[in-house]
Amino acid sequence: MVNTRRPADTFLFITILNICVVTLRQNIKVLLREVLYLMQKDFVLEWRQKYAFNGMLLYVGSTVFICYLSFGLRGGTLGVPVWNALFWIILLFTSVNAIAKSFMQENKGRLLYLYTLVSPQGVILAKIAYNTCLMLVLALLCYLFYAVVIGNPVQDEGMFLATILLGAVGFSTSLTMISGIAAKASNSSTLMAILSFPVIIPMLLMLMKMSKNAIDGLERAASTDELTTLLAINAIVITVSYILFPYLWRN
C-alpha cells in the first residue's frame, strides 16, 4: 500500500483546488457574511430552544447506558472490534437524529423570509458548518461518556480525536443535504434514514478502520489511505451539495 500515497495526495490537492475555485467564483465576501449571519441565527435559535439540544444529549446518554447494561450484564469487558463498532453506531444514530431536524424544524414563513434575503449556497454552507459544530460537541460528549461508562481502550488518543473530527464533518456534510431532500417529502423521518444510510456507509467503513488503527495504537502512517479517502469523499459531498442545493431550495 506504500505506492498508493503519492497519487492519493495529488488527488487531494486537486480536489481542494477544485473546491477553492468553485467557491471563489461566487462573490466570496457576500457569501461569507451570509454564512456567518445564518450560523449566528442557528446558534441563537438553538440557545433559545435548549430542550432540543438537551434532548440530544439525553439520547446519547441513554443509548450509551443501554449498551452498557446490555453488554455489561455478564460482567465481561467489550472486545476492541465490538467497542469500536458500537461507538460508531451510536454516533451514527445520534447524528441522523440530530441533523434530521435541521430543515424540518424550519417553518414555512421563516423559509420564505430567508429565501428573499440570502443565496441558497449561503444556506447550505451555513447549515453544514452549524451541523458540524453541533456534531463535534455531541461526538466529543459521546466519546467522553462512552469512555467513562464502558471503558476506554484507545491507545492513540490524538488520532482517535482526529477520527472523531473527520467523522463529525463527514456525517454533517452528507446528512445535511439528505435532510434537505427528506424535508421536502411527506414521511420525512423514515425517508431520512433510508436515504442517508447508503450514502453514509462508505464513510462509516473508512472511519471504523481508522479508529480501529487508533485504538490499536498503530503508527499513524497506516491510516493515510483512509484519511485521504475520507477527505476526498467529504470534498465531493460538499461540492455536490453546493451545486445541487439551489435546485432543492427553489420552490
Binding site: P7, F11, I14, N18, A232, A235, I236, V240
Partner: peptide, 27 residues
C-alpha cells in the same frame, strides 16, 4: 453558464479519482 462550469469541475473531480486509482493499481 456558471452551472455548466460547476458540472465540468465535478466531472474533473471524478476523473481525477479514476485516474489516480488507475495509477495506484498498476503494479
Amino acid at each position: 453558464m456558471r452551472m455548466l462550469k460547476n458540472w465540468v469541475f465535478l466531472l474533473l473531480l471524478t476523473l481525477t479519482l479514476n485516474i489516480n486509482n488507475a495509477a495506484v493499481a498498476q503494479t
